[in-house]
Design a protein around this nucleic acid. Structure first.
Length: 563
RNA sequence: GCCCCCGUAGCGCAAUUGGAUAGCGCGGCGGACUUCUAAUCCGUAGGUUGUGAGUUCGAAUCUCACCGGGGGUGCCA
């Protein structure tokens, strides 16, 4: 498998060139700096360019152009490089060899869906924890963004050579669980004509009623005959298990699957939290004040509550904060289970918690560098131009399931991925439904479908669509541009994995589709009068189809044969 | 008050993370289907990258200040 991207190989050539220029005396001795190589934005600049000589100008006290001219002749030849050129004010540009380019079509095709894989991770184990929505109701559209980012990131990291596990953290401890239990119990009692009044907050969503009805069908009046507290606890457990089934099912509809479901409760039940509290205490990070237990760390502007005071919070189950279990959880991830890295996908509304978790990691002796937080901006939902305010506490939200039933998982996944995590997402429900055929997702999928159509056409006229043609016949600019783009996939995977930025896949997929459409426009594939050329172009089409499928699959989408 | 994110063409967003001439979609205007699927393609119009300073050979990208939008902010989840 490819171990080095083209970019890296070109950087290597440049390094050799810079060194050779010194040993030959063309340039005085200097330390070779980091060499940046960028894909060119304009064809006039070749395929790749490096500004490295610009930075050397100061060191060498010479004009960048002069340095570049001294280096370029010393860049060693390579099979994939047609020429090396110098351009003002001091760039060194690389032009890929057309013959070599054409030969990559079969190479890519033979790599199959492994095309695009790189060895960035070197087998390191990384855990991606995402969604982790409170198990108190169905998955919302807001959580869908989390789900898609996390899942796609996991796929990208796997392609980049990491050993990846997907995990859902179940917040089943404390007041959320109780609130669900209370909500169910009250609804259950009401449905059975034995209304109970309790002075506690409840979840008002309609799904509570459905669940209560289901409960009655399962157990009848049994929970009215036991102690109320016992019933609430039992119903909390029952409710969470039920909700998790629904959550898993909703997410499966979005093609998101988890390797592990880790329960917050277990972090307490196993004694891990107690252990970590002692560890923090021993390190001098714990302060008792106002009846509460605080985490105190010099990196934090303020102390953070670990355990709330009994005077303020009577119910013991409600006293530990998220930070308390987060400390245990990071230990669980990075020490007990020994992942090399842990990635947290969080909504930006939790950004304030990041410094606390990082400080806690440092305090218990875990290198904070091993934690990465992906903070994505929230989704605002619009319907008829109006913002739809959502919260499970108010019972008002649009579920993922409703949307999937209307538009299917692919447009949702693509739309959630097209933007960087840093921009908030306006999700227009009417638009998503009404204009679904104008969603860019179909542009990419249609390119795949179109290729499938070409291959079917080949069969219709009695040709073998799997024939390996002669790549030397691929000389049209549109053919070579398409190959160039296919060749870039390993770099895109590297980019997305390095920067934890899965949105690069969508941009790439659109570019690739556009270049296929251009090829389709310019180059007739199936031509019975030119069997050799047809074979070569069928091979190229197969390659393009495979790369499109690979990108779509990385994004968790389907690559349809027909639309 | 303090912290985080955003501000790029009428609208929604990219820009390989400091590189060359800032791209794409939608919308506008004008074209292309007896040809492998027109869910496509071609042409055209549209920019002082919020404002002002600074750093740098070079800034949409980094720094500072200001303006505007969103989110968070010691016992909520």
């Amino acid at each position: 498998m490819t171990t080095q991207t083209l970019r890296d190989q070109i950087a290597g050539l440049l390094r050799a060139g810079l060194e050779a220029a010194q040993t030959s005396g063309a340039l005085p001795p200097f330390d070779v700096p980091n060499i940046s190589v960028d894909p060119s934005r304009h064809a006039a600049h070749g395929d790749y360019g490096s500004p490295v000589c610009m930075g050397l100008a100061r060191v060498l006290r010479r004009a960048p152009l002069q340095i570049a001219q001294a280096v370029a002749p010393h860049v060693p030849p390579a099979s994939f490089v047609e020429k090396v050129a110098v351009a003002p004010p001091g760039y060194i540009n690389f032009y890929l060899d057309p013959t070599w380019l054409a030969e990559q079509a079969p190479v890519i095709l033979e790599a199959g869906e492994a095309w695009g894989n790189v060895d960035l991770g070197a087998g390191k184990r990384v855990q991606v924890e995402f969604v982790s929505a409170n198990p108190t109701g169905p998955i919302t559209i807001g959580s869908a963004r989390n789900a898609v980012i996390g899942d796609t990131l996991a796929s990208v990291l796997a392609a980049a050579g990491y050993g990846v596990e997907r995990e859902y953290y179940v917040n089943d401890a404390g007041s959320k669980a109780r609130k669900l239990g209370v909500s169910l119990f009250l609804q259950y009692a009401a449905l059975l004509g034995a209304p109970v009044s309790l002075d506690e907050e409840i979840y008002p969503g309609a799904y509570i009623v459905d669940m209560a009805q289901e409960l009655i069908a399962e157990v009848g009046r049994r929970y009215l005959e036991v102690d109320t507290e016992t019933a609430i606890h039992a119903l909390a457990d029952w409710g969470i298990a039920k909700v998790l089934d629904v959550v898993a099912d909703d997410l499966a509809q979005l093609r998101v699957h988890f390797d592990t479901w880790r329960h917050e409760r277990d972090l307490y039940a196993s004694g891990l939290f107690t252990e970590m509290l002692e560890r923090l205490r021993a390190g001098g990070y714990v302060v008792e004040r106002d009846g509460a237990t605080w985490f105190s760390h010099s990196a934090l502007a303020q102390d953070a509550v670990l355990i709330r005071s009994p005077q303020v919070i009577p119910n013991p189950e409600d006293r530990p904060t998220y930070l308390a279990s987060d400390v245990a959880y990071l230990w669980d991830k990075l020490v007990l289970r020994n992942f090399d890295r842990a990635i947290y996908v969080w909504g930006a509304d939790h950004h304030g918690d990041v410094p606390r978790v990082l400080a806690a990691a440092e305090a218990v002796g875990v290198d904070p560098e091993r934690l990465t937080f992906v903070l994505y901006q929230l989704v605002t939902l619009r319907r008829g131009g109006q913002e739809v305010r959502m919260s499970k506490s108010s019972g008002e939200f649009v579920t993922l399931r409703e949307l999937i039933d209307e538009v299917g998982p692919d447009p949702i996944r693509f739309m959630m991925l097209t933007r960087t995590v840093d921009v908030s997402l306006d999700f227009d429900l009417d638009l998503a439904v009404e204009q679904s055929d104008r969603n860019p997702v179909y542009y990419v999928q249609y390119a795949h479908t179109r290729i499938a159509g070409v291959l079917r056409k080949a069969e219709e006229v009695g040709l073998d669509p799997d024939v390996m043609g002669n790549p030397a016949l691929l000389v049209h600019p549109s053919e070579l541009d398409l190959i160039r783009k296919m060749l870039a996939l390993p770099e895109i995977v590297t980019l997305a994995a390095d920067h934890i930025a899965p949105h690069h896949l969508t941009t790439y997929a659109l570019d690739l589709a556009a270049l296929f459409h251009a090829f389709y426009r310019d180059c007739r594939v199936v031509d019975p009068d030119a069997p050799e050329l047809t074979a070569a172009r069928l091979m190229l089409s197969q390659s393009a189809k495979m790369v499109l499928a690979r990108v779509l699959h990385l994004m968790g989408m389907e690559a349809p044969e027909r639309m």
